[in-house]
Design a protein around this nucleic acid. Structure first.
Lengths: 209, 209
DNA sequence: GTCTATACTCGGATAGAC
DNA sequence: GTCTATCCGAGTATAGAC
């Protein structure tokens, strides 16, 4: 049984795939330390021994899942960032697709930041994809717009971090934001839906010369 | 031996205090699931049995530490948010003190968001302080400035989430930001130091009418 | 390939000597 | 108050039957 770098073929309904899906769900919600092989087995509807038959150890299984998550997340961002497009358009698209992905995968951002902080060695040696998004073109584009006087001067590195922060943080900090703002789950959902538009407006406003 | 709500008196050098300090350090870096009583005992320079003598269980010890962390974090924010002050000044101070606190306690934000997401019940029933920051006054102040035409229209809830996001996220996402931007630890440190000024400028620019 | 049974290790918690 | 020794449950992993 050949092992691929990023897990079994999605969509198929083999035992291997069921295990992988179960592991994906459990690991992404509870992280490495908080997950148990028993829970993964239960969720996959099989028993513990089979996990070790297909994936030698908890570590290996975790690495497969983590790599799959990171690869998917990274490639999603790459697409938007590297296309040729006017700056304003690029910013709109970036925010829209980025928040879109997060909304449909709410547990992923927290998984990435908390796991990468807790197990940095593992991530940097095995898991992080090698072909990360290259924001260089974006930086040059920003500099060009500044030189042309079409936007206010700003360090492009800070701009991109501003944008990513405003897109990601409200989702990972959701429980805290909810109590701080006094919102119930329904109100919170509406609030998060509004953010694509709000963040876009705020960023563009902040860039006016 | 009386138990206080937020742990022993800081500064004293009793065994109880040494345990609490050790637990604070370990829990804040590794969270509940990733920490062991053995490691806490080692760091405190005593043995496991004593942990149970002073704090009945790992759960109790964790709750004390978590409550202390939350209480400190919350009260720090409260101070700035509730003082009477012109809006621009208030925003400047908020960003400055907020990033200041985080810089001096880099593991705290990640602890709070990842632990509150992993053990929400525990946090909402026992740990979260009851007297949270009340942003109501801040909201009214923003509305008033908008009505007077001194700032661009914006929902105050989104504004405050924008600000918090840009202050907190770069610290919790530091390892990721570092690889994305291709920075070494030294460059990253400089970058984070710049953020107080950069975030302030960006927020004020985004609010211009 | 899939199961049951079991070995082994680790971590939380307690008993009891001092 | 502090220690050593020990218990017990949980969790990873393997052996071996089918």
């Amino acid at each position: 049984m050949a092992k691929r770098e990023t897990g079994p073929e999605p969509g198929s309904d083999t035992t291997e795939q069921k295990i992988f899906d179960a592991a994906h769900e459990v690991f992404s919600q509870k992280g490495m330390d908080g997950s148990t092989m028993q829970e993964i087995a239960d969720r996959a509807g099989i028993n513990k021994a089979l996990l070790h038959y297909y994936y030698r150890s908890k570590d290996k299984l975790y690495e497969m899942v983590a790599r799959a998550i990171l690869t998917k997340a990274v490639s999603a961002v790459r697409g938007v960032l590297e296309v040729e497009m006017p700056l304003e358009e690029k910013i709109r698209r970036f925010i829209e697709t980025y928040i879109g992905i997060i909304s449909r995968n709410t547990s992923i951002p927290l998984f990435i930041i908390s796991e990468i902080n807790k197990h940095p060695d593992r991530f940097f040696s095995n898991i992080l994809p090698q072909d990360l998004p290259k924001p260089h073109a974006f930086f040059q584009q920003v500099e060009a717009e500044i030189a042309a006087g079409r936007i206010r001067p700003i360090k492009p590195q800070h701009l991109i971090v501003h944008i990513i922060s405003m897109c990601v943080f409200p989702f990972v900090g959701k429980p805290l934001m909810a109590v701080l703002l006094g919102m119930n789950p329904g109100e919170m959902k509406t609030f998060l839906k509004e953010r694509t538009e709000e963040v876009t407006q705020f960023v563009l406003a902040g860039l006016r010369p």
